[in-house]
Every structure is written in C-alpha cells, then in structure tokens.
Simulated scan of single mutants.
Amino acid sequence: METQPLVSIIINNYNYDRFIAEAIDSALNQTYDSVEVVVVDDGSTDTSRSIIDGYGDQVVKVFKANGGQASALNAGFAASTGEIVCILDADDIFLPQKVSEVVDLFRANSEIGWVFTESTPVKTKALVNVERTEFYKNIFVNNSSESPKLVDFRSELKKAKLPNFTPSTSNLCFRRTFLEKIFPLPECKGSSGLAICDTYLNLLAVGLGAGYVTTRNLGIFRVHENNLYSTQSFDNKRRIYAEIRIATAYWMRIRFLEFNKLSKKLFSQGLSAYLASGSNLKDCKELIEKYFANLRFHERLEVNCVTFYYLLKSRLSKPV
C-alpha cells in the first residue's frame, strides 16, 4: 500500500435532499488528504441532484435510475478508483478523523481485507443550530480507548455461526482488491429497496477474509423519521427482515457455495419471518420458489425443519 493511498468514499443517496449536503461535506472535510468522494443519486425525485451538482468537480457524480441500494453501490464502486473504499449513507456523517484512522488500520496489517467501525446515534433535532466542529470534536474525544480487534471469523462463518458484530452500511470500509471478490452485488431491490444491502456485504466480507473491528465512533448515525428500518412497526420490520434474509441467502448460495450451510440458516430465518408476517411479497415469493428448486430432497427437509423451529420460537417470544 502506498504511503498515501487514495480512499474512495461512496455516498449512496435516494431522496435525502435535506441531508445529502452534510454527508458530502463530512466526506470532503477529512483530516486525511488523499480522498475521492463519489456521490451516487439513485433516481431521486426531490432536489438532491441540484444539490449534488452544486459541488462541481469536488465530487464524482453518478446519476442513475432508481434501482435500490445494491444498484447504487455497484455504480459507485464502478466509478471509484481508490485503493481503500469507505461507504457512507446519505443521511449519515463521517467524523473528520474517520478516514485517517481507517487507513492506519489497513497500514498496520497488509493481510486484512476490511475494517468495521462504529457510529454514534444522534437524533436530527440534536443537530439543529449546533456548531459542527465542536460537536464532532466532543464525540471524538470521548471515544472508546479500546484497541481494535483483529478478527478472523472465516471458519466459524462456514459452519453457519453468525458474528456478533453487525455494522451498518456507513461503518464498512474495504481494501479495493478484497471488495472485487464481492462486487458487483446482485441488483435485487425488493419492495424495501434493501433486499441486498449491508447484511450481504458484511457477512461475505467476514467469510472471505480477516479484518479489524473497532468500537470507536468515527461517524454519526442520524436517527430520523424516515430511517427505513429502525423507525418501522414490528410487522414492517419483520417483513423487511424476511426480505433481506431470503435475498441474502439465495444470492449467497448462487455465488458463494462454500457458505451453503450459512445460506440455509439465513433462508430458514427469513422464511419463518415471512410466514409469520403473512406477507405476500412477489419478489420474496419468487426467491423462495427458486431457492427450494435448487435444493436436494434432504436439504429441503432440513430447511423446512429449521424454518418450523424458528417459526415456533418467534411465536413463543414477544415482539420488542
């Protein structure tokens, strides 16, 4: 890795004109110098594109028709050139030191493929009329002093054991050569637009290579009324969960057969949630049919038994 490797920050945006400028500014105002900011607008119908256009040649602009998060990330990755790639949702924010700390971790170990960070949740109203420099500084100086952990979870993932660290999109950073093993992502949008999202990406990353997990908050996760998952009702959360699990399981089996055991576990979890929710989502139904069509008889029996177990477990527990 070069002394100052180029870092691409890919921002994916859909109808977040009230947030996109702050996300772009946070990417441009890094303490690390060698940064390329790629902004993908996924067919917004608000004023997002005019705001993005206002940055001129400070950013690489990608305007495309709406295709969901996976489609937007594919377009951003194709337009980027950095040796390291960091992903930022348009409603989130990077602290100024984010890229610098991430690069230091990649420099520390040439064998790792990924770095997962943390972000502190902040309600939108808490960011109104606040002096940003001081606000960001307070988050940074009060950060965890715990050292990053080198994690190699590959053998466990192949045994279908799920990691207990599940970072959201804006906490994912990768070495480009490593990310090329996973991209392009399957452009499976689903009803939520998130059928293929950070779940697919971070699970495959953990399964394909070692990396660092740090508990340091190097960004802000903005909590607002339009957070697609966190603000949903229990029933809607369950439907989105089912869609993500089923799509992740299907494409994992199609593209990475070495994770077949995990794929069946994820599919059973998703199918049980789908059945419990009483959903009739066309995309989900099609993927369920395709998944079963690819299973041998004993695998179908196994998946049905595990699905029944998860379904029974969900009915015995209370919604949270």
Rank of each mutant, 00 (worst) to 15 (best):
K237R: 15
S192N: 08
A75Y: 11
V115T: 09
S50W: 00
F292D: 05
V38T: 09
K290Y: 11
N227R: 04
V39R: 03
K158C: 10
A79R: 08
N260M: 13
F94A: 08
T133N: 01
S272E: 12
K125Q: 06
S80H: 01
A79I: 13
M252S: 14
L228K: 12
V128S: 13
Y55V: 07
I246C: 06
D283S: 15
V151K: 10
K158N: 08
D198N: 14
G82E: 03
I182V: 12
E289I: 14
D104F: 03
V130K: 03
V38H: 03
S263D: 11
Q4S: 13
E118F: 00
K189Q: 15
F178Q: 11
Y200T: 14
A108V: 03
L228C: 06
Q69I: 13
T248H: 03
E101W: 03
I11H: 02
A78K: 14
W114M: 05
P163M: 10
L312H: 00
D91G: 05
N13L: 09
Q4A: 13
G82D: 06
T117G: 00
V128C: 07
A72Y: 05
F153S: 09
F135Q: 00
Q69S: 15
S44W: 07
R175V: 02
I182K: 06
D17A: 14
